[in-house]
């Protein structure tokens, strides 16, 4: 193990450039540790996001040596055996400055995909009883742990080609709600996720599934949406 790391960090906005830093190397060092060291010891103007540092909040995602990752859960040893790191903001999102991207397009698409629970029960109704082993509950369970970090969105080749594509996270969210038996927006949600910018644009490259730090499979969720949308279309409901 070399004593230092050769780190290139993206500086500036969309028209910025990589700047090189030499960073002391330590055992069990994470990429977030590296970024933090640069900000504290070399350049306090370096902009980046983080909060929990333990893989709960999903705010520290960046492009590390070409792939989107949570920097807090990425050990330098795993991604930079040769001691070289190239750290850039997440792809497929506008860069605000340095390592900070504007997440608005990402979350706007959650709204467009109707990624919000819409209940029909009132306070007069009893609690909904959803059997944990029912097929729909299990389908919802498979995708419910998404924390919206944007890693899948940055990894998606279709988003890169087709900027209006809703993307894996929004579609995964929609699929969990399609399977929520308490939700009342079924058909409107299927309409929202169908079409050229929706689930049908997915090429099943599975980059989202490969990159998801929570090991979810947005690809499976999108396939489920395709089936649900097709069934509704064939029934003439869309």
């Amino acid at each position: 193990m070399s004593a230092t790391l050769a780190v290139s960090v993206w500086r500036g906005g969309a028209d910025g450039a990589f700047r090189d830093y030499e960073v002391p190397r330590h055992a069990s060092q994470t990429v977030l540790d590296v970024v933090t060291w640069i900000q504290r010891e070399r350049d306090p103007t370096l902009a980046y996001r983080f909060a929990c540092r333990v893989g709960m909040c999903g705010s520290c995602a960046m492009t590390v040596n070409g792939a989107p990752r949570w920097t807090c859960r990425t050990h330098v040893d795993k991604v930079a055996p040769d001691g070289r790191l190239r750290i850039a903001p997440l792809a497929n999102l506008p860069v605000i400055r340095d390592l900070v991207t504007d997440m608005r397009p990402f979350f706007d698409k959650w709204a467009r995909a109707r990624g919000r629970f819409e209940g029909r029960a009132t306070r007069a109704d009893d609690f909904a009883r959803v059997p944990p082993d029912s097929e729909k509950r299990r389908a919802a369970e498979a995708g419910i742990e998404c924390i919206g970090c944007g890693v899948c969105y940055a990894a998606c080749d279709v988003v890169a080609r087709l900027p209006e594509y809703l993307g894996p996270a929004a579609l995964n969210r929609a699929w969990t709600l399609v399977n929520d038996v308490r939700d009342a927006a079924g058909l409107e949600r299927l309409r929202a996720v169908a079409g050229a910018a929706g689930c049908h644009a997915c090429h099943t490259h599975m980059s989202c599934t490969e990159r998801c730090p929570k090991r979810l499979s947005p690809t499976a969720a999108i396939a489920g949406l395709k089936r649900a949308v097709a069934a509704a279309a064939l029934r003439g409901e869309l």
Binding site: R191, G195, H200, A233
Partner: peptide
């Protein structure tokens, strides 16, 4: 026909 329905049916046609 709605855009959503058309795209869904075209998708079914491609898969079938």
């Amino acid at each position: 026909m709605s855009e959503a329905r058309r795209e869904a049916l075209l998708w079914v046609a491609q898969r079938a």
